[in-house]
Simulated scan of single mutants.
Amino acid sequence: MLKKLFILLLLVLAAAAGGYVYVKNSVETYLQQPLKLEQNELVTVERGTNLNTMLNRFSQNGWIDPIEFTNLIRRFHPELTRLKVGTFELTPTMNLTEALNHLITGKEYQLAITFIEGSTFKEWREQFARAKYLEHRTEAMSEAEIAQTLGIDYDQLEGLFLAETYHYSVGDSDIEILKRAHTKLNSILETNWQQRQDNLPLDNAYEALILASIIEKETSVELERERVASVFVNRLNKRMRLQTDPTVIYGMGDRYDGNIRKKDLREATPYNTYVINGLPPTPIAMPGEASIKAAVNPEDSQYLYFVASGTGGHVFSKNLRDHNRAVQQYLRHLRSRK
């Protein structure tokens, strides 16, 4: 009798061992299966998400084949249960174990939005609206409401953000990006304002920002910025009107169709520097650091005019006669290209 019981016990143990081996091998095969992805996919791990929930999501998405022993995976591989909150990118080359490890130790997926120097706040808002995985908190807000949310004392936000590339995670908001851009702009502006030349015709850093935005729109040639700045500083010192087309264009707003007509130059807008004296009331674009530096440290020159050369860059003149000649040369160049 005892012998039969012993044999029965051995059979039970053998069956249990066989079942254990079968389950463990099934789990290992399950974890080594490649993901069925045709392209990179983003996965967000919310707070409270556990391993079973994530595996069920993978299965429902058709990314893996299911298994009946899902609940036992944590017993064989407890290290796979420590999922990290965030959004992560999975690739078609991963198997299930690699994917789960990526959700545990991988870097959170970063997106990027790039604003170019000389762009306007209106263009920034349009870019925000197109940005994927970004929380669009400002979409229904007025410019003044956005300023209030950011703690900015100006109702108009033109020029108050540094144009560059900003990285963000899924779920970040446009407000968070604007805060970072405003902080960076303030830091650069304050540093350069403290290092400005003496006797500039600028009363404060905000006026330097306005001038920098005009410089940004007038030239993209790095070596010209200080010289362009000198023209405007010289004109301000002589109480000459700036007469710069980008300010006219900004004042025209959506009416601008690519051409400036004589009536546009005579139109009284707060930004028409052919009509107003001094600087316009706000920046006309988002200037880069180079234009801010140029605005507060212009070249020492006697230039009062400049016009496009037609071959890149500008021709600078110290008097109206030479300027008119340069204008005529530019017009001849345009006609020769038709």
Rank of each mutant, 00 (worst) to 15 (best):
T311L: 07
S309T: 12
I292M: 11
L31D: 04
P280S: 08
Q110V: 08
K179P: 01
G312R: 01
P270K: 04
R335M: 09
L162A: 08
T183R: 13
T93F: 08
V12R: 00
G258T: 05
F69P: 00
G19C: 13
Q148D: 15
D257K: 15
L31M: 08
A181Y: 08
E145M: 05
A15R: 00
I260V: 15
S26V: 08
K318H: 09
P298V: 05
N25C: 06
H167G: 08
H314P: 03
K4C: 07
S26F: 00
W63I: 08
D254T: 14
G288K: 00
T93C: 01
E176N: 07
F88R: 01
F58N: 04
H136E: 10
A15N: 03
E289S: 12
E68Y: 13
F88S: 00
N101W: 12
N277F: 09
G312V: 02
E190P: 06
Y154S: 12
V327G: 01
T273I: 12
R235V: 11
Y168H: 06
P34C: 03
L2T: 08
S230I: 04
R241F: 09
T105L: 15
K36F: 05
V233G: 02
S220E: 13
T81Y: 07
F58Q: 10
G288I: 03
E28V: 11
S301I: 03
L304M: 14
R130I: 02
